Measured scan of single mutants.
Amino acid sequence: TEYKLVVVGAGGVGKSALTIQLIQNHFVDEYDPTIEDSYRKQVVIDGETCLLDILDTAGQEEYSAMRDQYMRTGEGFLCVFAINNTKSFEDIHQYREQIKRVKDSDDVPMVLVGNKCDLAARTVESRQAQDLARSYGIPYIETSAKTRQGVEDAFYTLVREIRQH
């Protein structure tokens, strides 16, 4: 089974770092803004072998026109913010609204991801993020692309959301 996953969120929150940590098991430290990259990885989730087709997208506003296209083809979405960047957390709402509009559905598989949880300088409390996820009816997972904490959990949870859909 193949799953088309799309990673969305503001610029600099760590979308590529999360994806590369999942696929290649290493942490990319330097920031190089993405336009669009796709990665494929075969994994076993709950005993089922599946192929993850992951689209890593641009957070930069100037590429926002490309969003409709990949939102149409994606089956599930990782909505990523950084726990030390309140603005990126506030941006999640717009991504969710755009996904709902493009998919013409209120019920699209999504996982809210709070990345950079290895950093002490948190400005978005776990509780705020949990409340937001609960209001959307989606899971919330904290990750660190640096330490790998929660990385597999985030992507695998999204696959489970798609399966249950």
Rank of each mutant, 00 (worst) to 15 (best):
D56W: 07
S135K: 12
T34I: 02
E48R: 11
Y136N: 02
I45S: 11
E61N: 08
D53A: 01
V159N: 01
E75G: 06
K87A: 10
V159S: 01
F27T: 04
S88T: 08
N84I: 09
P33R: 11
E30W: 05
T123M: 14
G137Q: 02
L132Q: 10
P33G: 03
K116M: 14
I54H: 03
T57H: 06
V159K: 02
L55F: 05
V28H: 09
L51A: 12
S105N: 13
Q149P: 05
V28Q: 09
G150E: 12
R148P: 07
V151P: 11
K15E: 00
K41A: 09
Y31W: 08
Q69D: 10
E90Q: 14
E142W: 13
F81K: 03
Y70N: 02
K103Y: 08
A145I: 00
Y156H: 13
G12E: 13
Y140Q: 03
R67M: 13
N25T: 13
Y63W: 14
V111N: 00
I45C: 11
G74T: 02
T57G: 02
A17W: 08
P33N: 05
I92D: 01
A65H: 07
D91E: 10
K4Y: 05
F27M: 04
R101W: 04
A129V: 07
L18I: 04
Y39Q: 00
K4E: 14
T1A: 07
L112P: 00
S88W: 05
L158Y: 00
V8F: 03
Y39C: 10
R127K: 12
T19F: 00
K87G: 04
P33S: 07
H165N: 11
Y140P: 00
K41S: 12
T57D: 02
I45H: 11
M110R: 00
L22A: 12
R96I: 07
M71D: 13
Q149D: 09
G114N: 08
I162T: 07
Q98G: 07
Q42I: 08
P109I: 12
E142Y: 01
E125G: 09
S135P: 02
M71P: 03
K103G: 03
E90N: 13
N115V: 11
V159L: 12
M110Y: 03
K15H: 03
K146A: 14
F89T: 03
I92G: 00
I54K: 04
P109D: 01
T147R: 08
Q69F: 05
Y31K: 04
T143V: 15
S105F: 11
I99D: 00
I20W: 09
A129C: 07
R134C: 15
H26F: 15
D46V: 06
S38V: 15
Y39R: 01
R160L: 03
G11T: 11
I20F: 03
T86Y: 04
F89E: 07
G9I: 01
V6Y: 06
G11V: 11
S38D: 07
R148W: 15
Q164H: 08
D68Q: 07
A120C: 13
S38A: 09
T34G: 01
N115G: 07
Q24S: 15
G114S: 09
P33F: 05
M71C: 03
T1P: 13
A65P: 05
T19R: 04
D32R: 03
S38N: 03
D118I: 00
L158T: 01
Y140V: 08
S144T: 11
K146I: 15
I138N: 07
L51W: 12
Q24C: 14
Q164S: 13
E161D: 06
D46E: 14
Y31L: 11
K4C: 08
T57M: 13
K103H: 11
Y156G: 12
P109C: 08
D118P: 03
T34V: 01
D46W: 11
T1L: 08
T1M: 08
V8C: 02
K41C: 09
G14F: 00
L52P: 04
S126W: 05
A17Q: 10
C50L: 13
G137R: 05
N85T: 05
F155P: 01
E97N: 14
Y136W: 10
A145Q: 03
K15R: 01
Y63C: 15
L158M: 07
L5T: 08
P109M: 07
C79G: 03
R96E: 11
I83W: 09
D56I: 00
D29V: 09
S126M: 13
D68M: 00
E152V: 10
Y136L: 14
N85K: 06
N85A: 04
K41T: 13
E125Q: 08
A58H: 01
E2A: 07
Q42V: 09
F155L: 09
R134P: 01
D118R: 00
F155S: 00
V102P: 03
D118Y: 00
I99N: 03
S135V: 10
R122F: 15
V111E: 00
E142D: 08
E2I: 08
D107C: 06
K41P: 13
S105K: 15
A121V: 11
G47W: 06
Y63D: 05
I54R: 11
V159G: 01
V151K: 05
L119R: 10
I20D: 02
I92F: 13
I45V: 13
D106W: 09
S38F: 05
R40E: 00
V113P: 03
T34M: 02
K103C: 02
Y70Q: 00
D104N: 12
D91C: 10
S126V: 09
R160Y: 12
A82T: 10
V80L: 09
E97Q: 14
R163S: 09
E152N: 03
